[in-house]
Write a protein that binds this DNA or RNA. Structure first.
Lengths: 191, 191, 191, 191
DNA sequence: GATGAATGAGCGTTCATTCAT
DNA sequence: AATGAATGAACGCTCATTCAT
């Protein structure tokens, strides 16, 4: 027997992402994914149980890669502000480097299908953020408010900015990034 | 010729919104919308040219209502901070009062179909925000950074918070709202 | 709106029967039925909830017609033997006149799907037989054995004979029919 | 080269029979048969040329075993009636002992695929019946009517009765069997 | 204006069979 | 001999839309 072809699995996942970003979840069919990936529709079902599983797998893997990218060069010895800044830059760099991942994740997580993602899979993504924020609060550097609140101010505006930049094909320069980070830091840090 | 029945139009739009929020854009068909609205599929085409037009109309109307809600009690004589605060509270109140509108808008604006919305329709929504921010910058109260950046920090975290609260069925109390607003203000105001 | 087209419903049912008799239940798809009936596959679903409902409806209607044919000219005033004979002849005549009905019913009732037929629908068919047999037993003309047993001998061999005749394109002449009926009568009557 | 594994062949045939009896010819796929038999779909094609061959082989083997069972203890020295009675009892016992065989055979032989069975394979089954009937007619014990007619009355009602008993999980006791046999004998014997 | 009937195209999925190991 | 991977065609069914009343 032939071994499973890992490149096929990835072609399927990537084709799904590209089509979803281009035409939307609503107009991306299994046949189209298969055609784009250069396989038979039936082949998809060797790698994924059904369409929902395929989409959820794609989301979870994208989120996992995002999570990994953010942690790059991160170190517990860094000052809170520097660590925060590094994650912020990592995230923005990731958004620019893999806009597909990012655009897909935003579409997916705003659709009801996201509720089918297992909780542990979903929340793993936020762990590095959470950890940093708790560290910052313990050190008396970050405001003593709820985690959700800090998360919303620390990283969500960046996502919003990246969304616009990806759509317009623009990007922030160092100065813009510096200004943006300042806003974020002012929002969450004790002045 | 009977006049078009406004209540039918409303029923169709509302049914679409409810189904899309429950099952997703991808699983909401014209037949289902018709059944939910208690009309024939053919009737929908009397009120809307086709499915895309129906969805876009729904989005634009939802956004327009949001816009209107935010402006409630707003007055150019208010101090910048107070005006900002009022809009912030209006928006959060609207999210809680009409979670359907809000959930639908988030799903829609993260799907590619949003690109089919006429620019003037889409941007009208932001006008009150824009106007306020420009006033604040002129007065030297808000940071002299790009409009997009201030918008991202001033209102986007609130959307993110509301998304969680709607999903979990919770809400911020006055104290929480105060803390959240402080973060937003610190992000955008000159300290 | 257009009224439902009764001729379409019948074309669908008849096409299904013809295809099932020719190619078997296993090789008769909704598309093929639609093509044979000259309608769109989607149209079938206006008249029948799904494939199973279509097949079951077909079976029940075929059985109902058989039942009606058997009762033709039947009269409670007839002697038991004459009534029995009339039903026997009616049934054989029906088999020869509508071999499709008969062949379909045999295939259907030997497949597991027959278990999905509502009991009352299924047993209505046997009512005339049952009634006659009970009358015969009360009159002391038929053997006092179980109903199932008498039914099995009174009518099932005829079905078997008809099956062969239909397949071979032959038929019993009057003499053959007389001989066959004698066997049946000897089987069930008190000598 | 390993020798073909007879137990695998049996497992495939038996799995096919079980699935067909449970879900019907129409819903029994090669993959399901393979899964049920604990082999790969490809393995089935080592033992059988294709699906039709598999089904036909199954039918022919089932019929051959039935045929063998009926002949058990049969002896040309027996009186016609006793021989007839023995075959009748053998057949009923076989039906009760191997209801799967019997249910499968009835489904199969009422579907068009039965026409693909080679004539000699199919008719071999009836040889013992035929032989007995001819002996009985020569001896002047059985009615001098066509073979098909006698066969239809002699054994077909039993099949019908067994079908009901298998479905209901009941069985005839000795008394019931005696009564049933009497009917059959009265049908075919010269009084 | 409003309807249920009607449709060809397409949906997600499984089919019987073959391939490559 | 035996396998799981792979497939194009077909499955049952629903889609967005239009027709006829």
């Amino acid at each position: 027997m032939r071994p499973k072809d890992e490149s096929k699995r990835e072609a399927i996942l990537n084709s799904a992402m590209v089509l979803i970003n281009t035409y939307g979840l609503a107009h991306t069919s299994m046949s189209k994914i298969a055609r784009e990936a250069g396989v038979s529709p039936a082949t998809i079902y060797i790698y994924f149980e059904n369409k929902d599983h395929l989409l959820i797998t794609l989301y979870v893997e994208v989120k996992r890669e995002m999570s990994r990218a953010i942690l790059d060069s991160l170190d517990d010895d860094l000052e809170i502000r520097d660590a925060f800044r590094l994650m912020w830059e990592n995230l923005y760099a990731y958004y620019l480097a893999y806009p597909d991942h990012f655009v897909f994740a935003e579409q997916f997580c705003n659709a009801p299908i996201v509720d089918a993602v297992e909780k542990e899979d979903a929340e793993g993504f936020f762990a590095p953020f959470t950890h940093l924020i708790e560290r910052g609060q313990d050190a008396g550097v970050l405001k003593p408010v709820s985690l959700d609140l800090l998360l919303a101010f620390a990283f969500h505006p960046l996502t919003q900015l990246a969304k616009q930049h990806v759509k317009e094909g623009t990007a922030m320069d160092d100065e813009g990034l510096e200004a943006a980070f300042s806003c974020a830091w002012d929002a969450v840090a004790i002045s």
